[in-house]
Design a protein around this nucleic acid. Structure first.
Lengths: 337, 337
DNA sequence: CGTGGTTGCGCAATCGATTGCGTACGCCGG
DNA sequence: CCGGCGTACGCAATCGATTGCGCAACCACG
């Protein structure tokens, strides 16, 4: 059905090998330019499309990249995925997307199946701060971590500048007049949770403030966990006037908790989120949030991985940090005293 | 590096062909059970993983499926994608996910690149009511349409029962006492837009009502377009007390338009959405919306496609309609008269 | 005219798995 | 003991593209 090199060869009266070289930009210089032109014309007239399985078999490169996401239905990730796809596809690579549901066992199995597919590399958004599985994976494949990073893994990464993002949030609250600010922290096993907590402590110090209370950390990035934790943070606590949350789900949970306690946001407590997921401008109240450049994170990660693939020599590990910005909305206001 | 059939063959003293047969469940019966066991043991001791490019080259089946989505950042789709993935991966297939940005030119190019990858079939969420490209694709590949369908394409499909969904919305509004109900319709080129509009007209007739005004249709599924259209619908129109919107983005746009006109939702106008995207319970006001079973739609589509792949004989075209349910929240209330 | 270097291209092996065909062997009944 | 049959397995071709090797033709130069 589909045309092959042999068909083209027959049509132009050349050997398939010559046709192969003529059609491959990297080897076309070995072939007479006039011949190349003839071959090109024949190829397009036959609607020739190279068979990636055949070339992959020979070269043992599949031109596919495994993209491992904890949960695609978390609106943070589709933007990154699109950034990855846009960049990879321009380079002739195809992403193979999988979910792990934040489950390490599922992660191991999807990584195994992607390896079985002979992907050329990985982009992973599932890193934990301690992550032996990825540490080992990094020894066998080119990999790039996104969003969540891991110092225990010897690999390049692309993420938001958490320090900067949290500082924007704290500065904003200070400028509004808040002094009693607390942090609703993400899970400590996640770099994002950990770094944002550290960043919060530092930003508060920089402003000469002490946190309104010790940070409370949720055990998962879910709205339900956040609601529970925020309830225990806010209950009977009239001091705290502002909450910096480690992501938007936590912020939404905090707002729900506040409502349950008959506190109003932002009147009684200001809340800042992180990530600025879609529609956060339409929730009640519209959420002030730190916007991370999702598409850029994905695109940059893909670019990094592509350069790893060409430089089979060990390119130095590179940690890219992209700058977030603060979207100020109505979940923050001056404290009512 | 990786073990091959030949390595196993050498280890157990058999021919690679025999090993291949022993390891393939479909042909294992041709081999002595004792031999099969021996081969299996050797395979696992060598960590043998079959090379999909080699087997694909020989069999000309890639065990990959193209999944074509208009826009992954639209929260409607990730749920479907996950349903597709969950089902396909259990069957040993890998989805290849691409976006089209609702752009027909982009669609053509991504379909071309998936064909170049030699996918075994397609799941498409990009159908228009007239869609020559897909009609032609259906003659060359097994395909299944999801969410949006197309009568001009000879292919199976899985979608929500729009008739039922819209009826739920209209019934709910009637039960609240509304009689002046209008429809904010989606683009007519989309089956979802078209069917929901038809369904609205019929549901109104069934309740002995006439629409408060002719349906106004947006030209794209975007919040911005919806805001503009809803503004012109509601401006100077004090009759209409309720709006059935063709999806959630349109509903959000309608709410924004109402606010701009100093109408309050639900006090002055009730609004019903469609799809029930994530976080629609947290927008202001919490949106009453028709929930479609996203995961099930994806899973069922994948199942349908898989059965198309085994029955290379022409399985009859099948149109599956899954039943939506209404999530009642606070964007609907009895009319204030 | 002979030598050396370059250019253009063909040959054939190779990647790993699959599969049609052939054959050896064992078992059975006659 | 022989013919017939079925089971278990090997052989070799095949899928389509890539690539090391080498041949032949060509040019230039001494």
């Amino acid at each position: 059905m589909a045309a092959t090199l042999k068909d083209i060869a027959k049509k132009v009266g050349l050997h398939p090998a010559t046709v192969s070289r003529a059609l491959n930009p990297r080897t076309a210089h070995l072939v007479n330019p006039a011949t190349v032109a003839k071959v090109r014309k024949a190829a397009s007239s036959l609607n020739y499309v190279p068979n990636p399985m055949a070339s992959g078999l020979r070269t043992s490169r599949s031109h596919t990249i495994g993209v491992v996401i904890p949960d695609l239905t978390n609106p943070l990730f589709p933007g990154m995925v699109r950034g990855i796809q846009d960049t990879l596809s321009h380079a002739g690579y195809t992403p193979l997307l999988v979910n792990t549901d934040n489950d390490p066992a599922a992660e191991e199995s999807v990584i195994a199946s992607l390896s079985a597919r002979r992907v050329d590399g990985f982009v992973l958004a599932t890193a934990r701060r301690e992550h032996p599985l990825l540490a080992e994976l990094a020894t066998k494949f080119p990999i790039v971590l996104i969003n969540r990073i891991s110092e225990s893994v010897q690999a390049s990464s692309v993420a938001a500048d958490e320090q900067h993002g949290i500082r924007l949030a704290v500065e904003h609250l200070c400028a509004l007049g808040h002094t009693q600010i607390a942090h609703l922290a993400g899970p400590a096993w996640s770099s994002t949770g950990h770094e944002r907590q550290q960043a919060f402590a530092r930003a508060m110090r920089e402003h000469g403030l002490t946190p309104a209370r010790k940070p409370a950390a949720v055990d998962s990035w879910s709205l339900e966990a956040a609601t529970k934790t925020a309830l225990s943070m806010l209950d009977g606590n009239t001091q705290t006037t502002a909450l910096v949350c480690a992501n938007d789900q936590l912020a939404l949970g905090a707002i729900i908790a506040a409502k349950k306690l008959r506190m109003r946001c932002p009147r009684d407590v200001s809340v800042v989120g992180y990530n600025d997921m879609p529609f956060m401008d339409l929730v009640d109240p519209p959420l002030t949030s730190v916007r991370v450049p999702q598409h850029d994170i994905g695109a940059e990660a893909a670019r990094l991985l592509l350069s790893l693939l060409v430089e089979d020599g060990t390119m130095p590990v590179k940690h890219v940090r992209l700058t977030p910005e603060l979207m100020v909305r109505s979940s923050t206001a001056p404290p009512q005293r």
